[in-house]
């Protein structure tokens, strides 16, 4: 049965789009049929992170408004045959998305895919609301930083009250994905620890993505980090997270960057 997952956070810039691309690619790499849907109308970026920016013809709003068929708007990844993208509109007004329109698209996607990953816009307005509206599960992307944790708490409240599942009296299964984690700084007490964050948010952990230059390098070239450098620390962390999503019991570790000798001599971090 298809699963609808929303990748959300409240706060902007914490890694929702990067994580959607990496998780979607990792699922596809495991043979699952995946569509990633960009809900950030007006500020679409999932196409860019996936390297499909020049292939966008129709978008989510065209489909909602009946201008294009779903099959015309879906873009198949050139590297992973199981991965598809439904891009957001760059020019239209975000009010063009309707609850009923999104509902019917999600229903149609459910018949075609195993996983539907909805990349939420930042904020708590309409766009973020519609991205989570039909979700079965939610991934809350959180940085070890006070403003991000506060916004995650707010989003958790919304997931428990504004989703279709919540209105039916069911629960949206929630997972925390911690990104940009620096275990060195956390152990020195300079950064909120994993335990601090989980304690405060009272939500189970899906994965810990270490701060890494590989993430930026991957988005620079338009390739999900799990595809661009599968052996890198963040790629291994995303792959572990996906295995947990699929029900596997994977030990929770923070993958460590394999640094060259020069980097180690020059200090912990090159940039």
């Amino acid at each position: 049965m298809a699963k609808v997952l929303v990748v959300t956070s409240g706060k902007g810039g914490v890694g929702k789009t990067t994580s959607t691309a990496a998780l979607g690619a990792a699922l596809a790499q495991m043979g699952e049929k995946v569509v990633v849907v960009d809900f950030d109308v007006g500020l679409r970026n999932l196409d860019l992170v996936l390297g499909a920016e020049r292939r966008v013809v129709f978008d989510l709003i065209n489909v909602v408004q009946g201008v294009a068929k779903l099959s015309q708007a879906l873009i198949r990844d050139k590297r992973l045959e199981n991965l598809w993208l439904l891009p957001a509109s760059q020019t239209r007004d975000k009010d063009a998305l309707t609850d009923a329109g999104v509902g019917s698209i999600i229903a149609e996607l459910r018949t075609r895919f195993d996983w539907i990953l909805c990349d939420s816009p930042a904020g708590i307005e309409r766009g973020a609301m519609l991205a989570m509206r039909y979700a079965d599960e939610a991934i809350i992307v959180t940085n070890p930083e006070v403003s991000s944790v506060r916004d995650s708490d707010r989003i958790i409240g919304m997931l428990d009250s504004k989703t279709v599942k919540a209105e039916r009296g069911e629960r949206v299964e929630k997972h925390i994905l911690i990104t940009r984690y620096d275990s060195g700084r956390a152990s020195r007490g300079e950064m909120l620890s994993i335990d601090d964050i989980l304690d405060i948010l009272a939500t189970p952990l899906l994965g810990i993505i270490p701060e890494s230059q590989d993430v930026l390098r991957a988005s620079n070239v338009g390739s999900p980090v799990t595809l661009n450098n599968a052996a890198s620390a963040p790629a291994r962390a995303y792959t572990d997270a996906v295995r947990r999503l699929m029900g596997e019991a994977v030990n929770m570790t923070v993958p460590i960057e394999r640094r060259g000798l020069m980097n180690r001599l020059l200090g912990r971090r090159a940039a």
Partner: peptide
């Protein structure tokens, strides 16, 4: 901590501030 680490560990402060703030905000929700 300051004596041992040579500088302030700010994470405990962050944790405490968040706990107080969120207890309040959850009540308002």
């Amino acid at each position: 901590l300051r004596l041992i680490g040579g500088r302030t560990a700010s994470a405990p402060v962050a944790r405490e501030r968040l706990q107080i703030l969120l207890a309040h905000e959850r009540g308002l929700r």
